[in-house]
Design a protein around this nucleic acid. Structure first.
Lengths: 192, 192
DNA sequence: TGTAGTCATTGATAAATATCAAGAAATATA
DNA sequence: TATATTTCTTGATATTTATCAATGACTACA
């Protein structure tokens, strides 16, 4: 059950010891959520970081009754409403399940304790934060310097397989346009 | 000279020891850059993280010959083209000086060595990455769910003093509109 | 002090994108 | 399979924002 997540830690911090991995494993819990379910809703404090054993998730804002996607997360990736997790304040983002998910949770208090006790896990925490920073930075860049059409091309190019399972109106909100407009962008891309 | 930066470390990691602070101090170098100068240009690999002892900096993209600001950084803050610093790849962003700056640099190799040797500095590295993540996340949120006018209000509210020294056309690019349009937004805000 | 350059404002027009409404296509479900 | 529901597409129109051009205000500095 914990093979994938342990491999993930090992890949990011090769120096991690079996002892440290065991300490980690003792803190992990497994959860399953079906399509349409939520990991977290805005307003709740996010109490876990979660590793995706299988499934597909969306992380999104709800603004004036409309959803704005900010990411899609598939197998073998970490997910959390990380700002809420770090600050212990209510989440501004939601996470829901697009494809039935099997999740592995690590709670806040356990994580802080592991950080204190095990240097390699502290190092893992640093590297995860750095990775998330890089991802957000790239997302930010694309919002600032690309047109919606370019963002669409780029997104598809990066994640073709993952995104085949995501409805088009969610992709539209991710690139920052209405579903109608994305439909027109696609039409235009066909002809040219 | 190193009072401010040491206080900064101490605030983020209260458990840091004098020994660790001394090890840090031995790696620091001071640099001064006048208005109009650059800390880094896109294409270069960013080799330092930099603490602002005094001055005001802008971090920005250049796209089709136009500048797009992504942030302004004043005294007592950390700044870096952090993605380039972490990945050792060419920077996509520029950093230039708006108000004469006195900077304290910490190089990449020194930093990795400090991480390995001193747990509190590793912890500092994690917390800095987490802070940067949170900042970017908030910036991202504002780009996705606020109108340009709302972004302008929000930006001013957050940073009134700092931004008084920034020309309006740079603020326009930061909130994602043309200088002409920002001028109209301001006009509209006056009357209402 | 004057002059060149930069910056901010304003107006007219064009382009990009949203909204609203309807229908077509795809998907789920009884 | 038939029907209901959701998603995607298309058209007409409205709104937002950019572009281009001109002018006025401010700043630096020779």
């Amino acid at each position: 059950m914990f093979q994938k997540i342990k491999a993930y830690y090992k890949k990011l911090v090769p120096a991690i010891t079996d002892n440290e991995l065991t300490a980690l494993e003792e803190c992990l819990t497994v959860r399953e959520i079906g399509k349409g379910g939520f990991l977290i809703r805005q307003g709740q404090v996010c109490s876990h970081v979660t590793f995706m054993n299988e499934g597909l998730l969306r992380i999104f804002y709800t603004v004036n009754g409309k959803d704005v996607a900010i990411g899609f997360v598939g197998e073998n990736e970490y997910i959390s409403e990380y700002e809420s997790f770090l600050t212990r304040k209510p989440a501004t983002q939601n996470i829901d399940v697009l494809v039935d998910a099997v999740l592995i949770d690590l709670g806040y208090n356990d994580m802080q304790r592991l950080y204190k006790t095990y240097p390699s896990i502290q190092e893992f925490g640093r590297k995860i934060a750095e990775q998330l920073f890089i991802m957000l930075n790239q997302r930010n860049t694309s919002l600032l310097i690309l047109s919606p059409e370019e963002r669409y091309r780029y997104m598809i190019e990066m994640n073709a397989t993952l995104l085949q399972q995501v409805p088009q109106y969610m992709l539209a909100s991710f690139i920052g346009v209405t579903p109608e407009h994305l439909s027109r962008i696609r039409k235009k891309m066909m002809t040219s």
